[in-house]
């Protein structure tokens, strides 16, 4: 096969023939399409080739891919990389607008459903929440959570897709954590760990093979 460029201008047959692949996919402009059609009417060779082009196109267009599995992989990669982007400043404004909505909705009786719907990007948001929940930005949910009874979670956990319900219960039970809400559209669960044990439980949960993400959701006051 050669890479030599064949001059296609000045020859209506060559031009029309060369454009047939895009003619069959409807990707020619009106003027080019009209020229091809005029030529096709009087060219048996191109008419025969048009049949071949249509058959080629139909035969070549066939492949299935697993989107869900690969998205889970890439999401994990993004989540691992996100702190660097946060340090670069790109996230700060976005999170500054989003986290108050998130934390505000965490109060007892808050609008969980609506908030979950807003954050399929939960993993990234939570990884970066620590960037925002600095002393200069008091965590609003702590004030709101003062109303009894305090049923808020203090971490978010995402299990790997293949995790069974039995494994989910076993893992949380083994680490003395309990589900408070979820799952979200991103398959994340809001989980409550006993006061004072959160950091240790988070560390253990992160070591579980079935857990894709485990992150705190407040400023660390309940550690």
């Amino acid at each position: 096969m050669t890479g030599r460029i064949i001059p296609l201008h000045g020859n209506r047959h060559a031009e029309a023939h060369g454009l047939l692949p895009w003619y069959v996919t409807g990707r020619l402009g009106a003027a080019e399409r009209a020229r091809v059609e005029v030529h096709l009417n009087g060219c048996p060779e191109c008419q025969a080739d048009l049949k071949v082009e249509r058959a080629l196109r139909a035969t070549i267009a066939d492949l299935r891919m697993d989107v869900e599995q690969d998205w889970a992989k890439l999401r994990g990669r993004l989540e691992r990389e996100s702190p660097a982007r946060a340090r670069a400043g790109g996230w700060r404004a976005w999170l500054g607008a989003t986290v108050p909505r998130w934390t505000g909705a965490m109060r007892p009786g808050g609008a969980w459903g609506a908030t979950w719907a807003l954050v399929p990007s939960l993993g990234l948001l939570l990884l970066l929440a620590g960037v925002l929940t600095t002393p200069a930005r008091p965590a609003r949910y702590r004030l709101l959570a003062a109303a009894p009874p305090p049923v808020t979670g203090n971490m978010v956990v995402i299990f790997r897709p293949q995790t069974s319900e039995a494994d989910l219960r076993r893992i949380l039970g083994a680490h003395h954590a309990r589900i408070v809400d979820g799952p979200t559209s991103a398959d994340a669960w809001l989980v409550q760990a006993p006061a004072g044990q959160r950091a240790a439980i988070l560390a253990r949960l992160r070591g579980e093979r079935e857990i894709a993400l485990a992150e705190p959701v407040d400023s660390g006051g309940s550690r």
Partner: peptide
């Protein structure tokens, strides 16, 4: 920085790019 938008884009392009 909208990860949800990125996920939408990912779902559009994953099969095409694959």
């Amino acid at each position: 920085g909208d990860l949800r938008a990125f996920e939408d884009l990912y779902r559009i392009y994953h099969p095409r790019l694959s």
